[in-house]
């Protein structure tokens, strides 16, 4: 059963990577793989964003009502009123967390891609431009890893551009900083992939925003989640 799942999830990635196999370098293959995978996931992310938009509207109304109850009531009375607010909007923190399609899809996509890329022996020892070995941290600036910094810079810029609420913006920047620490020593192949992913999402958001004047339709997964909460 598990092997079947393994194959079901990995086969599409193998298919995509197989289509870019003709490119001469593993680095170029990785870039093409990132672009194609994101294009393939575009409809799914669009659906997720539409659902997120509706959920965000409800969440804002819940937050506003809960804040009103907290402002005026204490103790037992406050508890019962907040419970009624949740009931009214058919909302509960736990159901939101467990039922989050965004989270589930992102975990599945991330782990599948990670599993795929980490098993890709072609990347071991493979150079790409100034990067000597895609299976190791890039160390491009006298031992300083540039790709995680670039990825973080794109995130930070996107947050600045898309998230207006100062509190949420700060929260998103703090998360970006946290991930910089966590990902700093990642292999260059992975950070290159994530940097490209984020760049792709940013371009997609800019395009979507241009064509949907009323919508704040799409953020990077990272900013989207930060902005929602």
């Amino acid at each position: 059963m598990l092997e079947v799942l393994d194959q079901v999830l990995l086969q599409p990635l193998l298919l995509i990577y197989g289509s870019v196999w003709i490119l001469p370098q593993p680095g170029l293959q990785l870039i093409a793989f990132s672009v194609l995978l994101n294009l393939a996931l575009l409809p799914l992310y669009y659906q997720m964003e539409q659902r997120s938009k509706a959920a965000r509207a409800i969440r804002q109304r819940v937050a506003s009502e809960v804040a009103r109850m907290k402002r005026h009531f204490r103790g037992r009375e406050r508890y019962f009123y907040i419970r009624t607010v949740y009931r009214h909007y058919r909302y509960h923190p736990i159901s939101e967390v467990l039922g989050s399609a965004d989270l589930l899809v992102q975990i599945v996509v991330f782990l599948t891609v990670y599993r795929f890329l980490s098993g890709l022996e072609v990347l071991v020892g493979a150079p790409f431009g100034p990067i000597a070995d895609l299976s190791r941290p890039d160390g491009l600036l006298g031992g300083v890893n540039v790709l995680p910094l670039l990825m973080t810079a794109i995130n930070a810029a996107s947050v600045y551009y898309y998230v207006e609420d100062r509190g949420k913006r700060l929260q998103a920047w703090l998360l970006a900083a946290l991930f910089l620490v966590l990902l700093y020593r990642s292999p260059a192949a992975l950070t290159l992939y994530w940097t490209l992913n984020n760049l792709f999402s940013l371009v997609r958001n800019v395009v979507q925003r241009k064509f949907a004047a009323n919508g704040r339709l799409s953020l990077l997964p990272f900013e989207r989640l930060a902005a929602q909460r």
Binding site: V97, S100, D102, L103, Q106, I107, F110, Y114, M151, N155, A172, L175, A176, L178, F179, L182, L183, S186, L190, W194, N197, N198, L220, P221, F222, R224, L225, A226, R229
Partner: peptide, 13 residues
């Protein structure tokens, strides 16, 4: 190694 989107979602979990 976890990507920022998934990581932030886990944070909210």
């Amino acid at each position: 190694y976890i990507d920022p989107g998934t990581g932030s979602a886990l944070f909210y979990v």
